[in-house]
Design a protein around this nucleic acid. Structure first.
Length: 423
RNA sequence: GGAGAGAUGGCAGAGCGGUUUAAUGCGGCGGUCUUGAAAACCGUUGUGGGUAAUUCCACCGGGGGUUCGAAUCCCUCUCUCUCCGCCA
């Protein structure tokens, strides 16, 4: 959520920036500003009346104590009229505040100045590439054939237990999942991220805090009886740890990492993109989250990018980094880098991580602030990234590393898997 | 699931209709003292909103009500704790 103060003071800048996300904000912003003016005027009027009625109540109290009941009763009548007026203003004020919030939550985050214009993923900018694209033989298989050949991931069994998009990992496939999770967590904690095991069901307030609710309701599984949501990413519970918190400046940056399963309804997805591990309803992911001082958040974004790059290099997977264009960015993000690995048998780039700076957008919703030695609390910057999402990593590993002897496990994982081939 | 108790400032904990502009203690910050530190003493210490500004306004779990006046009384919701039952 953008703050009304920012909008009021930087109206044209906000409109221009939102245009980079192909969002025409002029009308909403004009409305927000005029509601804000009315809101402040009403607040002022109400405060004046409340002040008068507070004074009156004091006088009445004093008169009763002095035994002057008759005079006190005269004042009581006056007080009644004030009260009615105040009630009217209070109602008006509540309405205005609600209208204002309703508008503010419709505005996406303003993109950073480095975000390129563009409508679709085709206009993302390739900023970095690493590794060699493997050349496979003619008999190379896509991962969904390899998984059944080695009996490590069973999609059919998942259909039986739950439905499409809920695969069952078996044997070395299950062990590989555990190895990747441990490897990712170890790498994150080694550089100062505190490991968190959060709940994977969250309430509405948490969903609102990170921006999933109210608009992206259909993306999450909802447990109606208790009004809870299955998390689409660990970002939701982990970032909400700091909801309604005021940090000291010396507590920044806060670095947290968490492994969780993630649940996404993916309504509207269909076709070949959902084949095999490419798009699931339940998948595993290790997430990294940072809360940082606004002056340093872009350095932190670089640091997180480096961290994710390091993981992919260690896994020996060819990858590229994309700077997302305005049209492909999420509602809440100010700057996002996507990481894609090359999956050689499908001959496709698969997104395995997305690293974003949300600046104060989530912090404003979360009321996540920090206090400098002097002055008022101010909104902190929140950042997060996948480090990493497992299924497409597994897809690329299986496809790229297929050999006559089986699937070759990258060196760094062998201590975690305890085997060097899936065969 | 049954019964009971409770929700107050960073924490602990008073207050139960008008000396509350929320006591007191701890913690935090500033100062005195000290070579430095500790101790002691003094001062200070929440959030949001409004205004040109102020002895301005709101906030004692959320919402509603009674009253001239509510942290305090009433209703309601949520949550927490204790005991019992069930259970990984």
């Amino acid at each position: 959520m953008l703050s009304i103060n920012y909008i009021r003071e930087n109206k044209e800048e906000a409109i221009e920036r939102l245009a980079v996300k192909n969002f025409d904000a002029r009308e909403l912003i004009e409305q927000a500003i005029s509601i804000d003016e009315a809101r402040r005027k009403t607040q002022n009027e109400m405060d004046t009346l409340l002040n008068a009625s507070n004074q009156l109540a004091k006088q009445i109290g004093d008169l009763f104590k002095a035994g002057k009941a008759a005079e006190a009763n005269d004042l009581k009548n006056k007080s009644g009229a004030l009260k009615e007026e105040t009630a009217t203003l209070k109602n008006r004020l509540d309405e205005l505040e609600k209208e204002q919030t309703d508008i503010l939550i419709k505005l996406p985050n303003t993109p950073h100045s480095s975000v390129p214009k563009g409508k679709t993923a085709n206009e993302n900018i390739n900023v970095y590439e690493w590794g060699e694209i493997p050349v496979l033989g003619a008999d190379a298989k896509p991962h969904w054939e390899l998984t059944s050949q080695y009996d490590i991931i069973d999609f059919e069994l998942g259909n039986k237990l739950t439905g499409a998009g809920f695969p069952v990992y078996k044997g070395k496939g299950a062990k590989l999942q555990r190895a990747l999770i441990n490897f990712f967590l170890d790498k994150a904690t080694a550089v100062g991220y505190k490991e968190i095991q959060p709940p994977i069901l969250v309430n509405e307030a948490s969903g609102f805090g990170t921006g999933q609710l109210p608009d992206k309701e259909g993306q999450m599984y909802h447990v109606g009886m208790d009004n809870l949501y299955l998390i689409p990413t660990a970002e939701v519970p982990v970032t909400n740890i700091l909801r309604d918190v005021i940090l000291r400046e010396d507590e920044l940056p806060v670095k947290m990492t968490a492994y969780t399963p993630c649940f996404r309804r993916e309504a509207g997805s269909y076709g070949k993109d959902v084949r095999g591990l490419n798009r699931l309803h339940q998948f595993d992911k290790v997430e990294i989250v940072q809360v940082q001082h606004p002056d340093r958040s872009y350095d932190t974004l670089e640091e997180m990018k480096e961290h994710v790059s390091g993981l992919l290099k260690a896994l020996e997977l060819p990858f590229r980094i994309l700077r997302l264009c305005g049209g492909d960015m999420s509602f809440a993000s100010a700057l996002t880098f996507d990481f894609e690995v090359y999956s050689a048998a499908q001959q496709k780039w698969l997104e395995v991580s997305s690293v974003s700076n949300f600046e104060t957008f989530q912090a404003n919703r979360l009321k996540l602030r920090f206090r400098e030695k002097e002055g008022k609390p101010q909104a902190a910057h929140t950042l997060n990234g996948s480090a990493l999402a497992l299924p497409r990593i597994v897809a690329a590993l299986l496809e790229n590393n297929q050999t006559d002897l089986g699937i070759k496990i990258p060196k760094v994982l062998i201590p975690y898997t305890g085997f060097d081939y899936i065969d």
